[in-house]
Lab assay of single mutants.
Amino acid sequence: GREWTEQETLLLLEALEMYKDDWNKVSEHVGSRTQDECILHFLR
């Protein structure tokens, strides 16, 4: 997939603090990424 922007990464980190590993909520918060993309990015 395409590179994550700084904004997307910030949203991901913010969402992780709020929702922990509720990836459905996390991906909704990021908006432009799927659950799978969020998980894969997080694991890097």
Results as ranks from 00 to 15, higher is better:
residue 19 Y to V: 01
residue 20 K to H: 11
residue 38 C to H: 01
residue 33 R to T: 03
residue 5 T to D: 09
residue 9 T to Q: 15
residue 3 E to F: 13
residue 24 N to F: 06
residue 42 F to V: 08
residue 29 H to R: 07
residue 5 T to P: 02
residue 30 V to E: 00
residue 21 D to L: 03
residue 18 M to W: 07
residue 35 Q to V: 10
residue 25 K to S: 10
residue 12 L to N: 00
residue 33 R to M: 02
residue 40 L to Q: 14
residue 43 L to Y: 13
residue 24 N to D: 11
residue 17 E to F: 03
residue 27 S to P: 05
residue 23 W to H: 01
residue 32 S to F: 05
residue 33 R to P: 02
residue 29 H to I: 03
residue 25 K to T: 08
residue 26 V to Y: 02
residue 28 E to F: 01
residue 20 K to V: 08
residue 21 D to V: 04
residue 39 I to R: 15
residue 35 Q to D: 11
residue 27 S to D: 02
residue 34 T to R: 13
residue 6 E to M: 12
residue 9 T to M: 11
residue 8 E to Q: 08
residue 35 Q to A: 10
residue 10 L to T: 14
residue 7 Q to I: 15
residue 2 R to E: 13
residue 22 D to H: 06
residue 11 L to C: 03
residue 32 S to K: 11
residue 15 A to D: 02
residue 13 L to A: 14
residue 33 R to H: 06
residue 23 W to G: 02
residue 34 T to D: 10
residue 25 K to Q: 08
residue 14 E to Y: 03
residue 22 D to Q: 08
residue 16 L to A: 13
residue 35 Q to K: 14
residue 9 T to V: 09
residue 23 W to D: 04
residue 17 E to I: 02
residue 29 H to T: 04
residue 22 D to S: 11
residue 30 V to D: 00
residue 29 H to W: 03
residue 12 L to M: 05
residue 35 Q to M: 09
residue 5 T to Y: 08
residue 13 L to H: 07
residue 14 E to H: 05
residue 37 E to T: 01
residue 15 A to W: 00
residue 7 Q to P: 04
residue 30 V to I: 06
residue 1 G to R: 04
residue 39 I to T: 14
residue 3 E to A: 10
residue 30 V to S: 01
residue 35 Q to H: 11
residue 8 E to P: 02
residue 35 Q to P: 08
residue 11 L to Y: 05
residue 16 L to R: 15
residue 43 L to Q: 15
residue 27 S to E: 13
residue 1 G to I: 13
residue 9 T to L: 09
residue 14 E to V: 02
residue 21 D to K: 15
residue 15 A to K: 00
residue 39 I to G: 10
residue 16 L to F: 06
residue 5 T to V: 03
residue 38 C to G: 01
residue 31 G to L: 03
residue 20 K to E: 09
residue 2 R to L: 01
residue 10 L to C: 14
residue 19 Y to Q: 03
residue 1 G to D: 14
residue 19 Y to D: 06
residue 42 F to P: 15
residue 27 S to Q: 14
residue 9 T to Y: 10
residue 3 E to P: 12
residue 28 E to P: 03
residue 4 W to S: 09
residue 30 V to C: 05
residue 38 C to D: 05
residue 4 W to P: 00
residue 24 N to S: 13
residue 18 M to A: 13
residue 2 R to K: 14
residue 39 I to Y: 13
residue 40 L to G: 11
residue 23 W to C: 03
residue 18 M to T: 12
residue 13 L to V: 08
residue 27 S to Y: 05
residue 14 E to N: 07
residue 42 F to Q: 15
residue 31 G to V: 10
residue 22 D to L: 03
residue 35 Q to F: 10
residue 5 T to M: 13
residue 31 G to S: 10
residue 2 R to T: 13
residue 16 L to V: 14
residue 24 N to M: 12
residue 35 Q to S: 12
residue 2 R to C: 12
residue 26 V to R: 03
residue 38 C to I: 04
residue 35 Q to L: 09
residue 33 R to V: 04
residue 12 L to R: 01
residue 33 R to S: 02
residue 43 L to R: 15
residue 25 K to P: 04
residue 37 E to N: 01
residue 3 E to T: 14
residue 37 E to P: 00
residue 25 K to F: 06
residue 13 L to T: 15
residue 24 N to H: 11
residue 18 M to F: 08
residue 29 H to D: 00
residue 14 E to T: 07
residue 31 G to D: 06
residue 22 D to A: 03
residue 15 A to G: 11
residue 39 I to E: 15
residue 12 L to P: 01
residue 18 M to V: 10
residue 42 F to N: 15
residue 32 S to N: 11
residue 10 L to F: 10
residue 4 W to G: 07
residue 38 C to K: 09
residue 10 L to G: 14
residue 15 A to T: 02
residue 28 E to I: 07
residue 41 H to M: 07
residue 36 D to H: 09
residue 11 L to K: 11
residue 29 H to L: 05
residue 21 D to M: 04
residue 13 L to R: 13
residue 39 I to V: 12
residue 29 H to S: 04
residue 24 N to I: 08
residue 20 K to G: 07
residue 6 E to K: 13
residue 41 H to W: 08
residue 39 I to S: 15
residue 32 S to T: 14
residue 11 L to P: 02
residue 40 L to S: 14
residue 17 E to R: 10
residue 30 V to Y: 00
residue 21 D to N: 14
residue 25 K to D: 05
residue 35 Q to W: 05
residue 43 L to E: 15
residue 38 C to S: 02
residue 18 M to Y: 08
residue 24 N to C: 11
residue 6 E to H: 09
residue 5 T to S: 11
residue 19 Y to M: 02
residue 41 H to Q: 06
residue 12 L to D: 06
residue 24 N to G: 12
residue 26 V to C: 15
residue 31 G to W: 03
residue 1 G to W: 05
residue 43 L to T: 15
residue 19 Y to S: 04
residue 41 H to N: 12
residue 34 T to E: 15
residue 20 K to F: 06
residue 36 D to G: 11
residue 21 D to A: 09
residue 31 G to N: 06
residue 38 C to T: 04
residue 36 D to T: 10
residue 16 L to H: 15
residue 2 R to P: 00
residue 11 L to F: 09
residue 26 V to G: 01
residue 9 T to E: 10
residue 19 Y to R: 02
residue 27 S to G: 12
residue 14 E to K: 10
residue 42 F to A: 11
residue 17 E to P: 11
residue 43 L to P: 15
residue 30 V to M: 10
residue 15 A to H: 01
residue 32 S to Q: 11
residue 43 L to K: 15
residue 14 E to S: 05
residue 2 R to Q: 05
residue 16 L to Q: 15
residue 9 T to R: 14
residue 22 D to M: 13
residue 8 E to V: 00
residue 26 V to D: 01
residue 43 L to N: 14
residue 31 G to T: 09
residue 25 K to N: 06
residue 32 S to L: 06
residue 6 E to Y: 07
residue 21 D to H: 12
residue 12 L to T: 02
residue 18 M to E: 08
residue 17 E to W: 01
residue 27 S to I: 07
residue 30 V to W: 00
residue 31 G to P: 08
residue 22 D to P: 00
residue 25 K to Y: 03
residue 43 L to S: 15
residue 33 R to K: 11
residue 15 A to L: 00
residue 40 L to V: 12
residue 6 E to L: 06
residue 28 E to S: 06
residue 20 K to Q: 05
residue 11 L to V: 09
residue 34 T to L: 06
residue 33 R to W: 04
residue 16 L to E: 14
residue 15 A to F: 02
residue 23 W to L: 03
residue 15 A to C: 03
residue 2 R to I: 15
residue 13 L to I: 11
residue 1 G to S: 12
residue 38 C to V: 04
residue 40 L to E: 13
residue 21 D to G: 09
